[in-house]
Design a protein around this nucleic acid. Structure first.
Lengths: 125, 125
DNA sequence: GCCGTCCTTCTACATTTGTAGTAGCCTCTC
DNA sequence: GAGAGGCTACTACAAATGTAGAAGGACGGC
């Protein structure tokens, strides 16, 4: 069975994004992928990856040369789902404010909505 | 001008929820409003409120007897908006996965979607 | 086979966060 | 106006988080 919940910190989440995006990543790849302006030291990334490994969010998949490659264990979906649920709590479980903000900030398109509607109808059956 | 960003921790956010819900709240009110099973010590709430005050998220509005009443400075909306945006970053700015999860977990109704659609159409003009 | 690189592993440490006790100051009630 | 009870202000401290240096091992090129 899957781990209860893995609580990731902001920085950990930030690093996870790269792991998810890259599929499989070495410390150096992640380090270089981070915009120079906010790039932490190489060893900082390493430390975080080690902690992520301890938390069970990533695992070492294989080695290339003497470098480890890390791979996500937790999916972006499930991690995101938890965060969304937490966010909803903030609004007492009502998703309306959330959707409203997405629209206000132009992140939710009409197309997205149509798609959502379809999903909903399909689901209803 | 408003503070750059106020970064609230999980517990702080939890407490803010009560402040928002109650409009104006004393430490004791919040303390009692929290379900006994997860209720921290009275002074813990107090500490958090003091920190929230330092961060500029709440302010002391007035006193009742010798107790301070706290009031939110930051709105639930703006705080939520920031969190949503952070969440979106996780998905590379694509709100689809977010909406999909809302639907999967039954939090987004067809009615919500219709409403969103209207908003969008209005906004497009 | 040797050397420079690069990677890992360990260790360190300041801050932030969660959690709460203590002491003393008000206030309301007699 | 004296006492009880509640409230605040201070202090404390462990754990989590962000951040990184140092030391040494291994790999690839020559």
């Amino acid at each position: 069975m899957p781990k209860k919940h893995i609580r990731l910190t902001r920085l950990e989440l930030e690093i996870m994004r790269y792991v998810w995006d890259l599929g499989e990543a070495a410390v150096r790849e992640i380090h270089e992928a981070i915009p120079a302006s906010k790039r932490p030291a190489y060893t900082t990334i390493q430390t975080i990856l080690t902690r992520l490994e301890e938390k069970g969010a990533v695992r070492r998949s294989r080695k290339i040369g003497n470098a480890h490659l890390y791979q996500a264990v937790t999916t972006r979906q499930s991690t995101g789902a938890r965060l969304i649920d937490e966010l909803l709590d903030l609004f007492g479980g009502d998703s309306e404010p959330l959707v409203a903000h997405l629209i206000d900030s132009g992140k939710l398109t009409l197309e997205d909505v149509k798609h959502a509607e379809e999903l909903l109808k399909k689901r209803r059956k």
